[in-house]
Amino acid sequence: MLKVENLSVRYMQRFSPPVLAVDRVNFQVEEGEMVGLVGESGSGKSTLGLAIMKLVSPSGKIVGGRILLNGRDLVPLSEKEMRFVRGREISMVFQDPMTSLDPLMRIGDHLIETILTHEKISKKEAKERAIKLLQDVGISPDRFYDYPHQMSGGMRQRVMIALALALNPKLVIADEPTTALDVIVQDQIIDLFKNLRNQFRVAIVMISHDLALELEATEKMAVMYGGWIMEFSRSVDIAKDPLHPYTKALLKAIPNIELNDQKLISIPGHPPDLSNPPKGCRFHPRCPYAEDLCREKEPPVHVIDGRYVKCWLFGSDRR
C-alpha cells in the first residue's frame, strides 16, 4: 500500500552546506503490516517519517523520488491536497505526548475537534465516535473530561494514538512512540499497536533508535545509516542473521539479557557528517570489512532471498 521509491530529502542550513538527510531510499509497507525504521540520531529515520507525511518544509524539501500510497504519488500534491491525505489516509504519533497535546483542552474535546474538522457529522455523533476511540486504545470513557496533566505518560500516548486513528487512516507513522515511557508501559503500547493492527488492518511504521525493540515488535524493518537504508527485510531474518556489517556491529554493541558474559563491542568512530559525507560507502570509515572499493564507490542495493542490503560484500559479481 505504501511504496517509497528513491526518495531524497534535503535540508538547507544557514551557516553550513545543505544536508541530504534522506538519500534515495526505497521501502514498502503492505496493508496491516508493522514495519520498523531503525537508526541512530542523524540517520534520517525521523526525516523519512515526516517526508511521507510531506511535513519536512520549510527548511527541508523533497528533492527526488516518489511516495506511492495505494498507487497515488504524494510528492506532486499541493499542501491543500495533502490536508485530505493527512489524518484520513496517513496519520502520525509523536514521541512526547505532553508537548503534542493542548494542556488547556480536555482530551475528549481534542478528539471531537479532530473529528469535526474533517467530517460533517453532528457533535453528538462525534462524541460517540470519540468515546469509542478511547475504548479502542484502552482508556475508560470516564476519563473523557480529563486534562492531559491528569493522565500518566502511557495514557497520554494512548490518547495520541486515538487521535491518530480518529479518521480511520490506513497507515500510522509512529516516531519513537515509546521512547519517553518505561519498559512496562512501552510493552503495553506495543501490544496496543498490535491489537489495532489486527482489529483495523492499519499498517504501522514505527520509527525508533531501539534496535532490540524494533526486532521484537515489527514484521519488517529498515536499518538506516547516514541517510541510507542499509538493510531492509523481515525482522526475524535480521535478528537471526543480519547481513549488513552495520547491523551486525549494532547487534554486538547492545546488551542482550539472554546472553551471559556478553562482551559489548562499540562501533569505532562517529556517525557521518551529512554535510560532508564520506566518499563511497557512508559506513566505510567504521566498517571492519571495508576495502578499497568501499572507499571509492557507493555500494548498490543487492537483493538476496527477498532481502535488500546496500553493501559491496554481497554482489554475485564480487563473490
Binding site: V183, I184, Q186, D187, D210, L211, A212, L213, L215, E216, A217, S235, V236, D237, A239, K240, L251, I254, N256, I257, E258
Partner: peptide
C-alpha cells in the same frame, strides 16, 4: 515483570 518486558534482539519474536 520488568525483566520479561525487556526486548531481546536476537529472538526474532517476543
Amino acid at each position: 515483570a520488568l525483566m520479561s518486558a525487556i526486548p531481546v534482539p536476537t529472538l526474532g519474536g517476543r
